[in-house]
């Protein structure tokens, strides 16, 4: 087992649906090692995306603890969470979530610029070249295909060399060819950069390529 990077302890999360409180995650505990590729699977509504949001500091758990390295995410305030998301975590979403008013280059460079990195432009160029998108650096998201948008999103996730990439169904909106390309790219990059990858997926094929699979069922870890 590699050195642990992400540690989740007794995580619970409920939502209020109308007047009824529904438990989405119940007593979730697991550990992810550095450089590992972990797939989180489960049926719709099993709490996969909620778990990913909690891991990324995008939402607050009701109880339990999440550690990224030695830092307890669940105790951080908004400001420190923002810094954490910027420097240590990269996100890749199913719907890409690129800023529509920024072109591909600007979308990629944005997190580095936010961090005050003077090399932001050079890094963005290097990453776009790496994913063969440099010729399209000036294109806006609406001018790119789904696969291209996802490659831009991957570059954006990588620019601040995070230790953890959280991917939420990154191939869910893509055709099979583009999905295969994106998955290959993610895995190559994981190895190149030594980054830890936690990916939510419905796809058994994708899960099969993961080092480990955490399956959620009714908010609990099933296996």
């Amino acid at each position: 087992m590699p050195k642990p990077l992400l540690r989740v302890e007794e995580l619970n999360k409920t939502y209020l649906l109308g007047k009824q409180r529904v438990a989405v995650l119940r007593d979730i505990s697991f550990t992810v090692g550095q450089g590992e590729f972990v797939a989180i699977t489960g049926a719709s509504g099993s709490g996969k995306s909620t778990l990913l949001a909690l891991l990324g500091g995008l939402d607050q758990a009701d109880s339990g603890r999440i550690f990224l390295g030695q830092e307890e995410i669940s105790k951080l305030n908004e400001k420190r969470l923002a810094v954490l998301r910027n420097r240590r975590i990269g996100f890749v979403f199913q719907s890409f979530h690129l800023a529509p008013s920024l072109n591909a280059f600007e979308n990629v460079a944005f997190p580095a610029e936010l961090a005050g990195d003077r090399e932001a432009a050079a890094k963005a160029e290097r990453l776009l070249r790496r994913v063969d998108l440099w010729p399209r650096y000036g294109n806006f998201p609406s001018q790119l295909s789904g696969g291209e948008r996802q490659r831009v999103a991957i570059c954006r996730a990588l620019i601040n060399t995070p230790s953890l990439i959280l991917a939420d169904e990154p191939t869910g909106n893509l055709d099979s060819a583009a999905a295969a390309l994106v998955l290959d790219l993610l895995l190559q990059i994981k190895d190149e950069y030594g980054v830890t990858l936690v990916m939510v997926t419905h796809s058994p094929e994708v899960a099969a390529r993961a080092g480990r699979v955490i399956r959620l069922s009714d908010g609990r870890i099933a296996a």
């Binding site: 990324g56 923002a82 998301r85 910027n86 979530h97 690129l98 944005f110 997190p111 936010l114």
Partner: peptide, 19 residues
Amino acid sequence: LSRLAEAVYYRVMGASKWF
């Protein structure tokens, strides 16, 4: 909605509310 979406993207990338 566009602004809200932008705000969300920026927040995910680590931007502060004030930014």
